[in-house]
Design a protein around this nucleic acid. Structure first.
Lengths: 350, 350
DNA sequence: AGGCCCAATGTTAGCGCTAACATTGGCACC
DNA sequence: GGTGCCAATGTTAGCGCTAACATTGGGCCT
């Protein structure tokens, strides 16, 4: 509980610090009315340049800063957007958050964050309520997870909402933006097929993550359209540990010639397992990852992977939210990923 | 004068959305005064349980949410803290931010973020001003950089401020918290010495980062106290690319037997270079990193590294900020890092 | 019974700002 | 030279809430 019934004495606030200057103080100093100060601050056209200068001078002298709370109270606009993100320091969400914040600040918004330790309905609700109690003007959700997306449905209409989610979500009325995961998976798969591999095994991410699902779709679709036999699908999570275990298993039973891992961490685990078990990459097995995280260019061997432009993603999310807040038409076109070819993929053996 | 009837035209605000219920609406519904509603909301002791229930029911029925702006205006407390962090998705800052947010939310604070694309004075000032214009009650800075720390000095006294910074900062009056970087470097160095290495080469991080400096200090101190000859100091940045280049250079000219890299990314680059140039790790060269990032357990070979508990760091920062806001005694004791021994370090050759 | 205290509630006065309306005074126009 | 207009400014009325003070009505003492 933040508030105890402790014996509060002073009108609360920062203890010791005196009341900061208000608009009326500036007005008095500049010899104008507080409304004129307000006009200067809000770039109202009809203020004489001379008056404006006098006001600005007074502001500077007093170190005046406009009181956001008072302003928000009367305008009914908080100037704040909420960004909900995963409670794990994954590369993608972290990068996207940074991009969103940068864009938001450019447009003059404040960004409030809430992290999601778990992805159940209740946590999502709590986070949204947290934002609503702050009167955010819009919410961006960086947690491409099925349950999260579903838990957001009740809040559509309550507050403009943009969520990162591959495909699927339209029916729920939630605005979605994403990197084209399916395309990314297709790029990876096609690359391997082009190298002469008969088919491609996919080490998938957790299927409650929408991105993971979409990657499976893309992989499957590309194989099928290429007329390649269906590849093996192995379920994984997002971690290198899992990649390592799967890699050991694959090495033991005779590895496929091409594996598309759902992210770079999984790929890292695979590479290590193959290395330890003497399976040559890419001579015997080609490995392709997804994300292009920091360092993947220095895996052994350097990892071929699908790069997601998280910066673009973040900006697009914010632009989408702005459109949603203005009730404008929304552009849902996903961000296009690119394939980064390095040394972990090569021609099929034999 | 009676309260205005709801007949006034809605001034601006969210277009279309009607005015949300106010406390007086709840009061009317529950047949009490708005002040009683306020009392219920603030857990004031003298409210009859029956009355409280009636009020709570009215709140639920109307979907009432207290207006933060109005509350902040009168209490002079925004309930918000600002967190400034790096504009790069580094593992440490991202993890720390998450921990801070979690702790802050537990204590009932809102968290506003601002990222720092560059570390110059002006950007830092802009970010602090951004926070001040939001009337945050405190600021946490996750950017252990010398220039950032210095740029904060003018704001000491203006707003409670806690920054992550290894050593040094006390004189400036900025409250600092950190993982004990020097200790971490000592742990790494000692570990290598214990393995029989005569001395240890250090691939340092950029020296404008305080952590990087502190790691140099620790490394140097530990060597000196152990009576080992001074090791070579190589300047680097934080990236694997740099580690790779340095690794190639070291391999070319005959590598030392032990290298302590200032972070895991650098270590990753070293490992790759050594691998490619046929320098066996750890048989010929031992490598130790710093951070224990995701995946370092699956480098080839798995990386011995210094783990920083960023979650603890984040919590401690928040607790420290709370103390600072309450003008209490501050506990600056740093968080203790731990050495994680894996396969990249081994006995000195020969 | 009279008085007193205190728990439970109501009333009033702003917090600092913006929106809406009111008031100036200068100047173009006929 | 009056009329009207408009640019520049002032005045007023809240926004929704909390703090401080005011008002009730029992229960309980003497």
């Amino acid at each position: 509980m933040p508030l105890s019934s402790g014996s509060s004495v002073a009108p609360a606030g920062a203890p010791g610090r005196p009341r900061p200057p208000a608009m009326s103080d500036v007005a008095a100093r500049a010899g104008v009315s507080h409304q004129t100060v307000s006009r200067v601050l809000n770039d109202h056209p009809s203020v004489r340049p001379e008056t404006r200068d006098r006001v600005l001078a007074a502001i500077a002298e007093l170190g005046y800063r406009r009181n956001t709370a008072a302003r928000a109270l009367v305008t009914r606009r908080s100037g704040m957007i909420g960004v909900m993100t995963t409670g794990s320091p994954y590369f993608g969400p972290a990068s996207t958050l940074i991009a969103v914040e940068e864009a938001a600040r450019e447009y003059g918004y404040f960004v409030s964050v809430a992290t999601l330790a778990v992805f159940d309905h209740e946590s999502v609700s709590r986070a949204v309520e947290h934002f609503l109690s702050q009167a955010v003007e819009g919410v961006i959700v960086i947690a491409p997870h099925a349950e999260v997306r579903d838990a957001l449905a009740p809040y559509v209409g309550e507050v403009p909402l943009v969520t990162i989610a591959a495909g699927f979500a339209e029916g729920l009325g939630v605005h979605t933006m994403s990197v084209d995961q399916e395309l990314g998976a297709r790029l990876a798969t096609r690359h391997l097929l082009d190298l002469g591999h008969r088919t491609v095994t996919h080490l998938a991410g957790p299927q409650d993550w929408l991105d993971a699902r979409a990657r499976v779709e893309g992989w499957r679709a590309e194989l099928s359209e290429a007329g390649a036999p269906p590849g093996e699908l192995i379920q994984g999570d997002w971690n290198a540990d899992c990649g390592y275990e799967v890699g050991q298993e694959l090495a033991r039973r005779g590895a496929p010639t091409a594996v598309f891992a759902a992210n770079d961490q999984l790929a890292l685990g695979l590479l290590r397992a193959f290395h330890e078990d003497g399976v040559a990459v890419p001579a015997e097995v080609s490995v392709v990852g997804f994300d292009d995280i920091m360092g993947s260019a220095h895996f052994i061997p350097p990892l071929t992977t699908v790069r997601q432009d998280f910066t673009a993603l973040g900006r697009r999310c914010l632009e989408m939210l702005r459109s949603a807040m203005a009730s404008e038409e929304l552009d849902h076109t996903p961000v296009v990923p690119t394939l980064v070819i390095r040394a972990s993929s090569g021609p099929a053996p034999g």
